[in-house]
Amino acid sequence: MNIFRLAGDMTHLASVLVLLLKIHTIKSCAGVSLKTQELYALVFATRYLDIFTDFISLYNTVMKLIFLGSSFSIVWYIRRHKIVRRSYDKDQDTFRHYFLVLPCLLLALVIHEKFTFREVMWAFSLYLEAVAILPQLVLLQRTRNIDNLTGQYVFLLGAYRALYILNWIYRYFTEPHFVHWITWIAGLVQTLLYADFFYYYFESWKNNVKLQLPA
């Protein structure tokens, strides 16, 4: 464990807690893409298959349970909660996320570390996580008015993966043979997808104006 990875995990934890808190307290999911939340639930479900078979550490298990629990409960809130579901903007949240799942699955069947179910699912979860934010970014551009919490959620989600890249660089230089191209490239693509959001997020923060993404 290094400071970059710990900071990355804490930032990731903060992102899901910000979202859960927003939905739970104001009982609204305005501006939140259900598609992205469903993709994230799938990412965690396929990445943490080893949660009950390989015990790594208490921290690792607890964090996995939190990420699984929060992502599935956010999906439940938006789909099932009688008040929250009313604020879900299904006419705007129209990104066909199946077009993301299938290519990631095919890519995982072709590019993986070992051709086993677990390794293919691991690669699939990495590729899917890289693109899972797309429905949310598209929704933000459509809905124009980005409320602070949703903006913070997306920012923290992007920042966590950027911190993980620093973690991989640190581990590359401190651990011999630490080379994992699949993870690195997927993580880099993921962070690059946030690049323009980061730009507009900092612009709005610097000029102290409401965050607006160009259409």
Binding site: I56, N60, K64, K114, E175, T183
Partner: peptide, 10 residues
């Protein structure tokens, strides 16, 4: 470089 070492990451 086994993937094992990456499995400790979230």
């Amino acid at each position: 470089s086994s993937n094992k070492e990456l499995k400790d990451e979230l």
